[in-house]
């Protein structure tokens, strides 16, 4: 069954959707959308470095994404607004990454594959990395769920409950770096944030509790991956963007329903 590239692609898409759903909810609740975007852009530098050093792309992307996220966290509140810092670091990392890739003579690499993903070329090894990464992310978030939620609601409340919001923030940052790294193959660095945010946002109008929102987001994400791949196969469209398009249509539809019933 895993010999079929469509089956492998679908499994890869669903795996990423599962990791992205609960994490995406926190990204939306904490207004970190731009943070996710920036981490993904920075991952391009990681791709370039891992090609140059001949280490795994996953490791390189995680390392750079994490380094960027930690740098931003450290620099935040020292004279520049968060979005300015993110903009500077993310786009610089992306630019340096693209320039660095051009120096790598001898290896012909398809840059588009990293910018937009190449889900149809997912190998068994990639599947292992994606599902391994997704399992780690889901486990981390499930383990810290109540603490993360408390810290998201109010930092002082978290401190008063004996939690350290900085540690919870670090767990989210780490999860984000892993998710970005495993999703590069699936949707590429330019569309990862879409996979984080759109299913979570689409789930909002259907959910009454945070847990329900995460589960519904996972379902919407998986549905988008399956339907998007099917559509890409039928209409010969690029796979990663097609997945995001389906998610966007689901978001639009659910939002309209939500407004009509007056819940959103």
């Amino acid at each position: 069954m895993l010999d079929d590239f469509m089956v492998r692609a679908t499994l890869a898409g669903v795996g990423v959707a599962f990791a992205a759903a609960p994490l995406g909810c926190f990204v939306v609740w904490r207004r970190m959308a731009y943070f996710g975007d920036a981490t993904a852009h920075a991952a391009m530098l990681g791709v370039a470095l891992s090609l140059a050093l001949q280490i795994s792309i996953f490791a390189g992307a995680v390392a750079v994404a994490l380094a960027m996220a930690l740098t931003v966290t450290l620099l935040a509140g020292r004279g520049y607004a968060m979005d300015t810092l993110l903009g500077v670091l993310a786009h610089s990392a992306l630019a340096f990454g693209l320039v660095a890739v051009s120096f790598l003579s001898g290896i012909r690499i398809d840059l588009m594959a990293y910018l937009f993903g190449d889900i149809l070329a997912v190998s068994r090894g990639d599947l292992l990395v994606i599902w391994g990464g997704a399992t780690v992310v889901v486990a981390l978030i499930a383990w810290r769920w109540a603490a993360l939620l408390t810290a998201t609601l109010n930092e002082e409340l978290a401190y008063a409950s004996g939690l350290d919001p900085r540690r919870e923030q670090l767990i989210l940052t780490l999860s984000l770096a892993i998710t970005v790294a495993v999703a590069i193959k699936v949707v590429g660095v330019l569309l990862i944030a879409a996979l984080l945010i759109i299913p979570a946002a689409a789930a909002r109008s259907l959910a009454r509790t945070p847990e329900a929102m995460a589960v519904i987001a996972a379902v919407i994400g998986a549905l988008s991956a399956i339907t998007g791949l099917r559509a890409a196969y039928l209409f010969d469209t690029p796979a990663g963007p097609s997945i995001v398009c389906v998610a966007a249509v689901l978001f639009a539809g659910l939002s309209l329903l939500g407004w009509r019933s007056g819940k959103a």
Partner: peptide
Amino acid sequence: RVGYVPQRLHIDPTLPITVDRFMRLAA
């Protein structure tokens, strides 16, 4: 045993949470 009532709690409108769930967030 300390109970803490924060100054202002802004719950982002994208975060759905019922009163009951909020009350039972802690252990």
